[in-house]
Design a protein around this nucleic acid. Structure first.
Lengths: 117, 117
DNA sequence: TATTGTTATACTCTATAACTATA
DNA sequence: TATAGTTATAGAGTATAACAATA
């Protein structure tokens, strides 16, 4: 499922982790790189090349918060790309759900959320 | 969840893919390396180092079927290790299921199976 | 003293191309 | 002609250690 999602997101030049970061910043702007890493369970060190790619693609901007931290914000292009990523992932989720027999469907997400907690 | 399972299996010196291969051979002996790869969705080329490790650990043996193919069989040590791997994964599954609220529990596996098909 | 951003590095997983030997 | 086993290699994902600068 993850490789299928990765495949679909590659149509807008995003990896799954890229899309996760865009969605997180879209929901809460001006988080730092370290914040994002903590929330998405990505090591601080591994955020660097990820954000560098998003920065190079002009999807995010780094705005100094103080002399140590940077706030990550979406550029207009990043907001547009986020909408595309959302459309793709929502369609993907609908396609997945369509495979689940109707009597099990409403139980899947609550059960998965319980596993994850 | 996969990294938690990997962690538990490392107690018996197995990776998740090692355990999958042992379980498959345990269920159907004398498959070839290519068979196993097809059934577990592992590239033929990536089966080589995997089986080399299991072979070096004396958990499997390669028995010539003809001059081209090799049948993979479990050694006695491999059968014992398989029992340990089964005990660990079954406990893991019980632990996971215990987190799922009772009203959703019986729906999870059928829903996941439907997703996978 | 703890945290941020960063560099460097290593290991695992996965994918592809190519080769040989055989079915 | 297709398949088995193999080698080599590259790209991702992920983990750790270390460092300078700053809170």
């Amino acid at each position: 499922m993850m490789s299928e999602l990765a495949n679909r997101l590659s149509a807008v030049d995003l990896r799954v982790s890229d899309a996760s970061v865009l969605m997180l910043i879209g929901a809460e702007d001006s988080l730092t790189s370290s914040d994002i890493g903590r929330l998405l369970d990505i090591q601080r060190a591994n955020m660097v090349p990820l954000l560098n790619r998003l920065d190079a693609a002009k999807l995010i901007a780094r705005v100094p918060l103080d002399r140590k931290s940077m706030a990550i914000t979406l550029t207009p292009l990043g907001q547009e790309r986020l909408r595309e990523a959302r459309a793709i992932t929502e369609q993907f989720e609908r396609d997945l759900m369509a495979r689940v027999p109707e009597e099990h469907r409403d139980h899947l997400v609550p059960a998965l959320n319980a596993l994850w907690s």
